[in-house]
Design a binder for these strands. Structure first.
Lengths: 226, 226
DNA sequence: CTCCTAGTGTGAGATTTCTCATACTTAGTG
DNA sequence: CACTAAGTATGAGAAATCTCACACTAGGAG
């Protein structure tokens, strides 16, 4: 994690995401601009974050670390969205881990310093409420998709979502859990994709060789997004 | 829907559910006590509700009416919980339908009259935020269950959840959608239950003949509830 | 260097779940 | 009354997915 001291850039992100309008007061001006590299953790599992983040650029993923020590991939974050809002609302919640997929820029408010002020700000709370209810509706839709579509279709969509410079490089064990299928079956379908020429395996990982085909598979999955 | 004018009963529910503490002001005193009979709608699909409800007794279910006119069962409400909070926050949302399973009592605040006051009340907004984030966490768990358990297990849990006077009487078509399986397969597993003596069919519907066996099936599903 | 673990990869057979086809019943409608 | 739509019901074969078993590789720990 690295603090970016570039007021122009910060202002640009703020404008782009209407950051100021999230608050009833002038809290926005106290936000810092932070940058996270790929693989870095924005929130570490089980450790209360020091900031309330607002993701303005990049891509990140949400993990749940289970009692047995394993991680389960739960959800993705794409800008603009809050990160750490559950912890801010209710410190009793065990924080979930959030790890960066693509370099992330966040506007971040020091939690301790401004928590009381945030909890007393109806404008801010309204935005969080709306954010949470939309997120909830989205989760419901995602869940029904997992039931409604075949693994090939979901995997197609998933690969396009997590793709990075034309390569798919997620850990199979975690993806299997996220997509709710057995490890074995995931490998089976990936093998199918390779056989069909959608993916090609080289030393860097799985290269996307036929994006169109994957998009065709993913089409139905994503088009229930209204 | 019927308004109950019984201040003792109302006060009892309020105390039991800590209703007053949801608000920063003395809004609670303006709540009415409403009663809904089985099958009645608390919120009709697509129609903005006139109240912000707080379910204090009973059981209800949440539907999504799809574009093709069909209904999908999404979730259940058990007390205490808000109903209509999404609509209050953001009137642009198409309201989902909420229908009563077991007679319901709700404390209800007239939406139009108090909406502005609610949206300006940080105490109330905080409670809604926390409610939404818990609900979201629960939905995530439910979803992972749907992936992690077999239909027999989930159906066992489901029958016990929706059971009414010892009878299971849900519409198979809707249940199939809720549990995320084909209608055919649901019927298949129900037939298994009958064959195994867990259920017995008579003119009133399916009678629960072996609750223990169903509980045994449901055990694993429900015990991930920590 | 060796052991150990996590991740990867493959095979084979079992189970779950789906699709399609086909009927029967009931309530509503013209 | 005849027609229709929705819900119920059952059969048979196919597809999706799971479980178990085994093998290989790379990196960290002793």
């Amino acid at each position: 994690m690295e603090k970016i001291v570039d007021d122009d850039l910060k202002q640009q992100f703020m404008t782009q995401c209407h950051y100021e309008s999230l608050f009833g007061s002038d809290l926005a001006q106290h936000a810092e601009l932070l940058h996270f590299k790929t693989q870095e953790y924005i929130v570490k599992n089980g450790i209360q974050p020091a900031y309330l983040f607002y993701l303005v650029k990049g891509k990140a993923k949400l993990y749940d670390s289970l009692a047995n020590g394993k991680d389960t991939l739960i959800d993705f974050f794409t800008p603009p969205c809050f990160i750490g809002e559950m912890e801010m609302l209710d410190a009793k919640n065990e924080p979930f881990g959030v790890q960066v997929i693509d370099d992330c820029y966040c506007l971040a408010l020091p939690m301790e310093k401004y928590r009381a002020q945030l909890l007393a700000d109806p404008t801010f709370l309204q935005h969080v409420c709306i954010y949470l209810s939309h997120k909830n509706a989205r989760n419901i839709k995602t869940a029904s998709r997992n039931q409604g579509f075949t693994l090939s279709q979901r995997l197609g969509a998933f690969i396009l979502l997590t793709e990075h410079n034309g390569y798919y490089n997620e850990k199979h064990t975690q993806v299997a859990e996220y997509l709710g299928v057995s490890y074995r079956h995931l490998l089976f379908v990936i093998a199918d994709f390779v056989k069909a020429g959608y993916l090609q395996k080289d030393r860097r990982g799985y290269r996307i060789a036929n994006q169109k085909a994957l998009q065709r598979l993913a089409w139905e999955v994503n088009s229930s997004d209204n």
